[in-house]
Design a protein around this nucleic acid. Sequence first.
DNA 1: ACAAATTTTTAGCTTTGCCTAAATTTTAAT
DNA 2: ATTAAAATTTAGGCAAAGCTAAAAATTTGT
Lengths: 218, 218
Amino acid sequence: MTLSEEDYIKIIYHLGKGDLGSVSTNSIAERMETKPSSVTDMIKKLSEKGLVNYKKYQGVTLSEYGLKTALSIVRKHRLWEVFLVEKLEFSWDEVHEVAEQLEHIKSEKLVDMLDKHLGFPQIDPHGDPIPSKDGEFKKSIKRLLNEVPIGKEGICVGVKDSSPPFLKFLDKNKIALGDSISVIDKEEFDGSLHIKIREVDIHISDQIASNLYLRIIE
Amino acid sequence: MTLSEEDYIKIIYHLGKGDLGSVSTNSIAERMETKPSSVTDMIKKLSEKGLVNYKKYQGVTLSEYGLKTALSIVRKHRLWEVFLVEKLEFSWDEVHEVAEQLEHIKSEKLVDMLDKHLGFPQIDPHGDPIPSKDGEFKKSIKRLLNEVPIGKEGICVGVKDSSPPFLKFLDKNKIALGDSISVIDKEEFDGSLHIKIREVDIHISDQIASNLYLRIIE
DNA sequence: ACAAATTTTTAGCTTTGCCTAAATTTTAAT
DNA sequence: ATTAAAATTTAGGCAAAGCTAAAAATTTGT
């Protein structure tokens, strides 16, 4: 697979996930930042290679083989994102561009060992689930922190209240988008939470917890 | 810079280091596993871009700019090799192919943070020195372990005695090619050494030490 | 239903990096 | 000093992946 073929497969995967039907030539062109005519050319090639199902003027869908390929690329992309954030101190919003390059590195051992090195993460810094080696993956859902079950881990993906005092609080406590948070325990008395973030335990009020969104694995 | 251009620059750098004069078209072709005519084409392009000095039929040398570029690629290659061995448990001889791909990833921050993550290593798993960010680097030399000064660190790069009993000893003590070894102390009485390898201290006889080659930074 | 608008495909051309075959230059041998 | 051998370059082509312009198919609006 060439680099370009991989990009197309990944984009067809992402576009096809939302929709129910097949993916249009124009939508692919837009995402690839290329012209529809170029897309037609590539689709033909992918079709010949058995990666997509294609009928003229009808758009494309991934074949089973194409889907497997797409998931392997997504897996690599998300594992590298975790690596960049957890090991190299990249922030949440800096990782995409670099992961976009790293996802094309070809070495099965590299991916497996990276996975192991990272402790087999299930979720990336944007809260998206990481496909397993054989292409399975969990669905993720967005929940307010105070609704996350005890013991669960999630990624901080947003705030409900975006007032300066709240944001300042988050900043002071070093809670940022992309951070991984686990719920250790909940106080029955006031609904306050004990959470673990960056290997430290902190205690936060229900008020805080009900204004922070996490993305967790179901 | 395209991927291919980077490969040429790196190869010209490596070929030019040994020789005194300029690098021949044929030698580049051999290393690139391509034809001399293709090399000529590429050399012209590199020359136009100011990366090499070229006169027809006279071979090429790197320009100052070309050298800087080459060193940056070598730096990335060797840092990734350290990463693969130290963090992902790759062995000495498995890293090259993967590093060959990783060296082309474009992100200055990635390289800087990787360097930091690895503790600013000066030497790669083959014992070759890693250029600093601004392209300087130390010379490395090969020494028998018993001749390495106390306090120095080096990479195990070979054995003098390759008899089964010796190799078995190395295996039992988990000493392998590519391992980083530091000399902690030397006993005056029998010349035996205290060394640190993989974060553990062990004690070895002078006999052993005088049959193991390390590559150290001068 | 059917013309207009939109989407998709085709045809033909460009660039990059490679190739083969032939021409040219340099090097080596007698 | 010539000539044979080896190295290098030129010329002309090919495949991948893109582009523009024009043709064809589909969808939409009334």
